[in-house]
């Protein structure tokens, strides 16, 4: 009886179950982020600095700030995600993980979703946590703050998914940063429009369910489509 178990064990290692693969990737991402906290802190600092520039550059008058506030916060979040997304698959590409993913029995979109969800918690979680502080800096009414956080909660994963497509396409290039922004920013426009429309409705005490539903549908669409596009793009970079 004791002769067989080792063989069975190695067999079960090859047939990695989907849930354990998912868990191990999430665990790996979090331990990597924990080793390099800059990955968590830098996007937030960037977010704060960009928002600070606007009162200095335009006008510190409370009325102006209230008017431009939601848009400024959203543009800052958008740029911050675009920068943090640039290194998403870089290490995996240089260390050969992408080949390993392609050769494994686990489907590529599942691996990508695991990676993107953990990347979202790591790089966007803090943006959402700090957004009320920025809302106060921009003189946004307290009633609008829940809507702001909600819009960021729904909108940032869309930005991350679209940005990841851009990163997967440019990951093998040495200087993909500017190209990434050229590719990704036009695709960000609908999210920006619906998110700021949602905040505009919230600031005049109107129902923002409609805009929020559109954002949610964009989230579902990007959740379904983006992993497929990212998988195809990553496959293209390694062969």
């Amino acid at each position: 009886m004791s002769k067989h178990p080792p063989q069975q064990e190695s067999h079960s290692n090859i047939q990695l179950s989907y849930s354990s693969a998912f868990k191990s990737i999430v665990k790996r991402e979090f331990s990597l982020a924990w080793q390099k906290p800059a990955q968590i802190i830098q996007p937030v600092v960037f977010f704060l600095i960009v928002v600070t520039l606007f009162p200095l550059g335009i006008s510190p008058s409370p009325k102006t700030l209230q008017l431009i506030g939601p848009g400024v916060i959203w543009i800052a979040a958008l740029l911050s995600i675009m920068l943090s997304v640039e290194g998403l698959f870089r290490q995996d590409f240089h260390e050969g993980h992408i080949e390993a993913w392609l050769l494994s029995t686990v489907p590529m979109p599942l691996i990508i979703i695991a990676k993107l969800l953990s990347a979202w918690v790591i790089s966007c979680g803090m943006l959402i946590v700090f957004s009320p502080l920025l809302a106060m800096l921009m003189n946004i009414a307290p009633e609008v703050i829940p809507a702001l956080m909600l819009s960021l909660l729904i909108g940032t994963p869309i930005l991350l998914f679209i940005g990841a497509i851009g990163n997967a396409l440019t990951v093998s290039l040495n200087q993909g940063g500017v190209l990434l922004s050229l590719i990704v920013l036009p695709l960000y426009i609908p999210v920006l429009i619906f998110a700021t429309a949602m905040l505009e409705a919230a600031s005049v005490n109107m129902s923002y369910v409609g805009q929020m539903s559109v954002l949610l549908s964009l989230l579902l669409l990007s959740f379904v489509m983006a992993p497929l596009a990212i998988g195809a793009a990553l496959k293209n970079t390694v062969n």
Binding site: I165, L169, P186, L187, I189, P190, I193, F194, L221, M225
Partner: peptide, 17 residues
């Protein structure tokens, strides 16, 4: 790949704008 991603987005961009 980018052209395909873009064409899915074109109607979304159009109607959002």
């Amino acid at each position: 790949i980018l052209a395909i991603v873009g064409v899915i987005n074109v109607p979304i961009i159009h109607y959002s704008v």
